[in-house]
Design a protein around this nucleic acid. Structure first.
Lengths: 348, 348
DNA sequence: TCACCAGTTGACAGCGCTGACATATGTCTT
DNA sequence: AAGACATATGTCAGCGCTGTCAACTGGTGA
């Protein structure tokens, strides 16, 4: 970059900056860490020296001396759109605070998972970990993290952890609203595609659906409620079961978009016209929702926002170092209904 | 974990392990780093001590003392399926070598990008960086990395960098084969959806298409070749232009799956029956390809494998420290045709 | 005048590990 | 038996930074 920088060999050290600004390394350190108690004039001189030397503090050294790591972990089970979005939001927030994000896929079926978690968090001295569902409910992971004493934030856990915060969305309310939209359009026989057990999303979304049905006094036919695993392939099977019920539904509400897309496929294979003969609604506003035809009515999750908030919780926590504030923060975000062509009035 | 571990306060240090195994810290260090020249019996004793104390070496300290970081960077422009897959492969390979992956989204339109790159690689002392397209062709990023002297591997670059390796796939051959499939089914008027300029994929896939057309002596109607930007929304526009040509094509080959899905949507909106009246082929085997109906014929990229190879190149490079081996490694992988329902014989 | 204080700055040790080099220890020559 | 060598282990300084605490500065008010 600058002349001085390239003339030297190797990167600049804090000592060089100190010499250049005629202060002690400690004072430079104060400036780097935004500590107060440095005269403005001195700070300016140091900042200028840093600029001139194109100095970058060494994270390893900072971490070693300060007993920290500047690293936050993001643990997930399966990659996907949700992860991409989340990761983007989390990285953004991290950079604002001079932190970095370590992503780590954890195979939920593996036996070594707890060991991996423990190794990672302790080798890297992670300053915090964010657990994406369904990891947020995984007992072994939770235990390993607790033992390693890493502050953890759980995203959409089934059971709220007593001693860590969580970030969540009001899936139940959103599912209720979507169901109301279907009911308002005259649908009475409505199928529901459940997600895998053990996801909070599965439970809450179904409850919201049931809330609305009961409120209107509309019965739920158990034959029309089937379990999938949030994946397209499995969704095909699940949709087939629903659509071959003795009395076919006029609408299907799937608890995520991939399964909703599967329902649309199966319906078409069976010769049904969409949305004329079958309305379909999903959840998540995944890319597929706007890539299919008709476009899928769904519920949008503010994923990046959730990510920012979760990351923020960890960052805010650092100064305390001795437990989370009470009461445990549990922000809950609202979701947004996105009505699109796949939902139409029921044919009488 | 073990009794001894939990009895102490704070994590075990190399010194404790050394005491416990009655050797010097240096010898423990040798064991940790898999150096040779330690008697088997000594090694076993040390390993046992490590186990007992549940010792985890401190990465910051290792990095500081050894002038390394154990970190590899993965820089990308936009998240997506490709990234998820790639990331998974790269993380796997990293863990096998006791390394870690730092992901970093880089906004290609931002002016600060080069500064970000430089800051990141130097603060963290990254041991290597993998550039995903289209970053692999971004001059400022390349320059910043070169200046910071970070070994870099470019994925599918347009112009092969002189002084860094690249990993690539034979998109041209695959596109040629897919086009031959269409020609073999009697299609003669074939539309092509280009990607954004500046991607190697755009150029190569079109060239493969043209190769096959020319080889068969079939003309390419310029009106049927339109530019999209690899995204669904833009693909709609692009497909509309192609399908409203004076003489409508009987098949469309899109240079990625999202755009192919868009073509399918537009076709249906226009009342065309798929695949009867229009065959569609894509590229990438993205999730959408198997989530649409009819399922999309496409070309599968071995993304994880590419990721492993790229990561491997960086890991292999470390020992040398003085430039890459000659000739510069440029592995090129084969792609796999996936024929599915969206491609059918042309109606005569 | 001086003790006193808040605001600044610096001296110094040491975070946990590894590189370079020194020192055993054993093995094979001659 | 002494030297020459390979193998195994240890000593020690120091990587680049920050925590702790001491020292200095220039007001204050008694």
């Amino acid at each position: 970059m600058s002349k001085e920088a390239s003339a030297r060999r190797g990167p600049a050290t804090i000592q060089m900056v100190a010499d250049c600004a005629r202060v002690s390394p400690k004072t430079v350190s104060r400036v780097i860490n935004n500590e107060r108690g440095v005269r403005e004039e001195t700070r300016d001189r140091i900042l200028e020296a840093i600029r001139q030397l194109d100095y970058q503090p060494n994270l390893n050294a900072r971490g070693l001396a300060g007993a920290r790591s500047f690293l936050i972990g993001l643990f997930y089970d399966k990659p996907g759109d949700y992860l991409s979005e989340f990761q983007t939001g989390a990285v953004q927030r991290c950079r604002e605070s001079d932190l970095h994000l370590m992503v780590q896929p954890l195979d939920i079926t593996s036996k070594d998972m707890a060991r991996d978690v423990s190794t990672l968090s302790r080798q890297l001295r992670l300053e915090g970990v964010i657990l994406l569902p369904p990891l947020s409910d995984h007992a072994a992971v939770r235990a390993a993290l607790a033992e390693a004493q890493v502050p953890t934030v759980h995203i959409a856990p089934m059971r709220e952890p007593v001693d860590s915060p969580s970030v969540d969305t009001d899936d139940r309310a959103a599912a209720r609203q979507m169901t109301v939209e279907l009911l308002d359009r005259g649908h009475r026989r409505i199928g529901f595609m459940l997600g895998p057990p053990g996801h909070r999303a599965t439970e809450q979304r179904y409850l919201g659906f049931a809330d609305a049905m009961h409120a209107r006094g509309v019965g739920i036919d158990p034959e029309l409620v089937q379990t999938g695993n949030f994946e397209f392939g499995d969704g095909l099977e699940c949709a087939r079961r629903i659509l071959s019920a003795r009395a076919r539904p006029t609408a299907i509400f799937a608890s995520n978009d991939d399964m909703a897309a599967a329902a649309a496929c199966v319906a078409r294979q069976m010769g049904l016209e969409l949305p004329g003969q079958l309305s379909v609604a999903g959840f998540d506003d995944a890319p597929i929702a706007s890539m299919m035809w008709p476009q899928l009515a769904t519920v949008r999750q503010p994923v990046r926002h959730i990510a920012r908030i979760a990351t923020d919780l960890i960052i805010q926590h650092r100064p305390h170092r001795h437990g989370w504030p009470h009461p445990m923060p549990r922000p809950r975000l609202d979701l947004e209904l996105v009505l699109r062509g796949s939902v139409a009035p029921a044919r009488l």
